[in-house]
Amino acid sequence: MVTERVARVQRVLEQVMDPELPFLTVTELGMIRGCSELEDGTIEILLTPTYSGCPATDAIQEDIEAALSPMETRFKIRVVHAPTWTTDWISDAAREKMRQNGIAPPEGSSADKAFLLGKAQEVPCPRCNGKDTKLVSPFGSTACKAHYQCNACAEPFDHFKCF
């Protein structure tokens, strides 16, 4: 049941930004997996990490704690691993924001694992929208991104990996 207290916490969570993608909220990225009131009145927030080793997970917990502290509501954050986070949970609006910020969003769903099967994946350039781009390295500036370059406009850019 979404009580008034839960709804208030959810509204605050919708304002917590991802430290590595500071134009997206942790809610838009699909990292908040639940928010409910326990029997003793504590609000429990379920958080799932994007990648196992994502160093931002600790920072995000601290940011959530800082954002909720003025509310004087008893809460706890529980990190959950199942079901496994997937880029499929990133909303279309969030994908558009990535594009506007020079990051090529994950294309399609994690079901078509073109790259994982060794096939080149089409990743349009976020600057000129050209489709002639090349993979520079499957490991980019953070664990969740690959490094691409546009053959048309020469822009080097990050691609949020399909995961």
């Binding site: 990648y51 080793g53 160093p55 390295s137 490991f139 500036s141 664990a143």
Partner: peptide
């Protein structure tokens, strides 16, 4: 960057 990122994934696991 690749080897460091792989190390980070393994550390997370």
């Amino acid at each position: 960057i690749a080897l460091s990122n792989i190390a980070l994934d393994l550390l997370g696991q």
